[in-house]
Design a protein around this nucleic acid. Structure first.
Length: 214
DNA sequence: GACCAGGCACATC
DNA sequence: GATGTGCATGGT
């Protein structure tokens, strides 16, 4: 994948770095739920223009104020509540508490994130890996589809079992986890679609069922 | 017109 | 516990 694509340099945020891009990555992780990234980009640019790409500010805003700003990312009434909940987790009372969170073990942090309204396992892992630099492999719809088509996963394997498989098989290295998942999304987004576009897939097609249902 | 997009919470059985 | 459904909209 790396040979075919080159490094993906994820997360695709405007700013990078653990503090600079953190707010943007966390917000993007919520907005991209069940949504194409390009629709998220528009919402992020609106938030940026409003100077609201900021967890401390979102934590103190009413969801009703947030909703119209993120319209392009879809589910805006729902996601405005989720954004606020996540912002309140990182910045209770509008005060960012990164120093405190840095002392939490990754698994503790993961369970705490999943307990936040609107944060499931994928969103939690995306935040852990891409925003906080923690060792936590991200599974998404593409990873499941690719894994199933290439015989790495069974049809009924769920998120956690897929995560266990990839975590056991890949060296525990944050930049590697980062790049690996980014490449899987690149393959999924460009080749391994529900409709049979596998023809040009740079992965071996030997075990790939181009016409299979997911 | 049908299906899909880097999910998640909640109701119901 | 497993399964179904709502959430919004634009692109293919």
């Amino acid at each position: 994948m790396l040979a075919a694509s080159g490094p993906r340099a994820w997360w695709p945020a405007e700013h990078t770095g653990v503090r600079q891009g953190l707010d943007e990555i966390v917000i993007g992780a919520v907005l991209t739920q069940n949504t194409a990234w390009k629709n998220v980009v528009q919402a992020l640019s609106v938030l940026r223009a409003e100077n609201l790409l900021d967890l401390e500010k979102l934590a103190t805003l009413d969801a009703e104020k947030i909703a119209p700003l993120i319209k392009s990312s879809g589910y805006y009434n729902l996601k405005s509540k989720r954004l606020k909940a996540v912002a309140e987790f990182f910045a209770p009372g509008g005060k960012l508490r990164l120093k405190e969170l840095e002392t939490w073990p990754t698994e503790t942090l993961r369970q705490s994130l999943i307990a936040v309204y609107g944060v499931g396992p994928e969103t939690a892992d995306s935040i852990l890996l891409y925003a906080l630099g923690r060792l936590s492999f991200v599974i998404d719809a593409y990873t499941l589809r690719i894994g199933r088509r290439h015989g790495l996963l069974a049809a009924d394997d769920d998120y956690e079992s897929a995560r266990a498989l990839f975590s056991a098989g890949i060296d525990p290295d944050v930049p590697l986890y980062n790049e690996y998942h980014a490449l899987l999304v690149w393959i999924g987004n460009n080749f391994c679609r529900p409709t049979p576009l596998c023809r040009k897939c740079p992965l071996s097609r030997r075990d790939c069922f181009a016409n299979s249902k997911n």
